[in-house]
Design a protein around this nucleic acid. Sequence first.
DNA 1: CGGCGCCGATTGGTTGACCATTCGGGGTGA
DNA 2: TCACCCCGAATGGTCAACCAATCGGCGCCG
Lengths: 227, 227
Amino acid sequence: MQDMTLMRLRNWIVGSGLARGDRLPSERELGTLLGVSRAELRKALIVLEAEGGLERLVGRGTFLAKQSRPARGSGIEGVISELAESTGPIDAMNARLVLEPELAQLAALNATPAQLRELRRLSNAMRVAATWSSYEGLDSEFHEIIASAAGNSLLQALHRMLNGVRQIVVWRRLETSDPGPDPGYHSFDEHEAILSALERRDGAAASAAMRAHLQSTLAAMTTSPAG
Amino acid sequence: MQDMTLMRLRNWIVGSGLARGDRLPSERELGTLLGVSRAELRKALIVLEAEGGLERLVGRGTFLAKQSRPARGSGIEGVISELAESTGPIDAMNARLVLEPELAQLAALNATPAQLRELRRLSNAMRVAATWSSYEGLDSEFHEIIASAAGNSLLQALHRMLNGVRQIVVWRRLETSDPGPDPGYHSFDEHEAILSALERRDGAAASAAMRAHLQSTLAAMTTSPAG
DNA sequence: CGGCGCCGATTGGTTGACCATTCGGGGTGA
DNA sequence: TCACCCCGAATGGTCAACCAATCGGCGCCG
């Protein structure tokens, strides 16, 4: 399993709405926000800095890099942004519908207790998300942990690309007004159903719950063309 | 690369004569060797670990990863070769089992007559392939056309990555003796079944045929590990 | 009134001690 | 004699305190 903090930080940045060159909260604040110690957060920041995504300056703060293309990152980032330009939201959701139910099924077999605990935490956090963008970050993380729990590194990599494309596409239709999801948002209970199936190690139920979740999200996208 | 410690660590590893899987000195020793503090060394180790070059185990030590990580291109090819190193043949086949039946179902709805004709040509050509490697090329093309016929550019891109990884993995275990598939090779009829379902626009049958095809290939891989 | 400089708050960076995990060796009992 | 268990050393992981650099405001002085 990979570094959970790094994953959370990546998704927080995505959900934060920060643009290139913007300043991140201080390490101490960000650690509190993510619920991790400063040292643990620091480990993730070091990796992002080495990838070229961040710039850290003593006495000033931590900034998102100005360059869009990481010079020596994993290379997957460039492919993602490239794909995002020729992909629509509907295609992205349909691709998720193909991949993620199967990932959920595998995750039901292979998820570790730590991963299940993390999913539980995220499920609760999403219910009280104050803004849509913070919700998006948590949601991305939820699905990514399921992908990593599936135990197939290749499928996980494909899902990461897919999720990256989806995040870019979602960004495009983010409105400035951002009140956050209302308490009755359909995804809350759907996430709960997925998580419950994973905890029961019921692969078929997990797969079905994931499919239902994505289909209801897709339906919401097509009926209310907010984007 | 601006981090001097990281550079020194990389060079030390190269000059150390250590092989894959070997254990590095402890953080405290290595810090003394390189003349840096443990924290500073640790920063470099974190980066190398995130890059996949190291594995660190509490209570045991720090080890060179089994796979090396040479420099890579930045495009999709680099991502493919990167993924191929951390993916086994079984994982690759399982990923195909997730993706390709769904692609076949979509292709049954959306394939153009020209695509069906091309698939027909490939199916015939594969039956008379003189060598395994030429057969592999035709087979890759067959599956890639189905992916493109599905009509979802994102899924097609994912499949292209998947197919790239599979080709690398398959090549690895190619023997020098290469008589080509014998006339009774199971895939011939399975390809025919897929193509037939596509021509009938029968999505369910196409999906089932594709799944059966991949499963029989996976079974052949697991029973006769020679390839 | 304007420029200069100091001072403190804030930031990322560093340090040393401490914690959790793993492994192996020696003692103990069957 | 062998198996088991326990304990201590070694290892990577974590933490809280402290350091150095930076910036902004305030006051002093020209």
